[in-house]
């Protein structure tokens, strides 16, 4: 009897520490935030002392032009960054999917930008973008070209460039892995049938890579909404609100304007947006699995 109950308890004993920590420090805070978003909440108050204001925080945000601006900036940033990185990353992977010397060095060193602290990435790029002594402007000057006011007039573009530098390797490495796990037989058959390089890419490689590419893209998109430190160090959200993405605005609303309720409501908007993306990813992988199972089933029927 005791032995049976011990067995039944075993999985829970393995799960308990992780579940407890996540419950206390992840799920409870999220619930707390959702509750707090309905309240008029100042950092000096405990949540029990605050007044319930219903949906006032949400409504205020919907009317707030600064929130619109930063929501728009976030969307523009995330979608631009992801589409450029996808094109570059997949393109490079297709181009370099061959047995060349130096490839392993590239794959090793290409991870470097992702591993370094975003704060440090911001620091480096801030120096390189600097108006007078920055690397880019000095280079332009040496060529006799007019210099560019990177972080002033082209702030969003500069931030996007820095992010592309940091995250294109992610997509490159994942799509390269996908490419190299493609069934050789299909490619072989296409080559024997006389398909040109482009035809192989468009009709064989890309369709076969598609499941991995879509998951990669969604993962990267979700991550693009988390970017904060690079932009904070590069521009601090400015000039004006040009680069103030939502994550940054949440931090400022909480710290500088001391409106915790409003910041919580804003966090919820961001969370809802990401929830839609995540659900999309779930639905896609489920659909993919179901399709794979159906294919296997029909193959077995025929075979």
């Amino acid at each position: 009897m005791t032995r049976i109950s011990a067995n039944r308890l075993t999985p829970y004993m393995f799960i308990a520490p992780a579940a407890l920590v996540m419950l206390i420090a992840l799920f409870y805070p999220i619930a707390y935030m959702i509750w707090g978003s309905f309240r008029d909440w100042d950092p000096s108050q405990t949540i029990g002392e605050t007044d319930f204001v219903g949906l006032a925080n949400y409504a205020r945000l919907l009317r707030d032009p600064a929130f619109h601006e930063s929501f728009w900036v976030t969307l523009v940033f995330a979608f631009t960054v992801v589409s450029v990185e996808m094109v570059l990353g997949v393109g490079l992977a297709l181009l370099l999917d061959r047995n060349i010397r130096g490839m392993s060095v590239l794959r090793t060193l290409f991870i470097l930008p992702m591993m370094i602290a975003p704060v440090v990435v911001g620091l480096i790029w801030r120096y390189m973008f600097h108006q007078t002594y920055g690397t880019f402007n000095r280079f332009l000057e040496a060529l006799g070209l007019p210099t560019v006011d990177w972080l002033g007039q082209n702030a969003l573009l500069s931030v996007i460039i820095a992010d592309i530098w940091q995250w294109t390797p992610f997509i490159f490495i994942l799509s390269l892995a996908a490419l190299q796990s493609l069934p050789r037989s299909a490619l072989e058959a296409a080559r024997i049938d006389g398909a040109t390089g482009w035809q192989q890419i468009i009709y064989i490689k890309l369709p076969l890579m598609m499941p991995v590419l879509i998951v990669t893209m969604l993962l990267r998109l979700i991550d693009a909404f988390k970017v904060l430190e690079v932009i904070l160090v590069l521009t601090g959200g400015g000039p004006g609100l040009q680069t103030e993405i939502l994550a940054l605005r949440i931090a400022r609303t909480a710290r500088e304007f001391r409106e915790l309720g409003e910041a919580a409501a804003m966090s919820n908007y961001l969370l809802m947006l990401l929830m839609v993306l995540t659900l999309g990813m779930f639905a896609f992988t489920r659909w993919q699995e179901a399709r794979a199972r159906r294919l296997r089933f029909t193959q077995e029927e025929e075979g």
Partner: peptide, 9 residues
């Protein structure tokens, strides 16, 4: 969940 969302709670 982005870290920014956890900031307030």
């Amino acid at each position: 969940i982005p870290p920014a969302v956890l900031l307030v709670p």
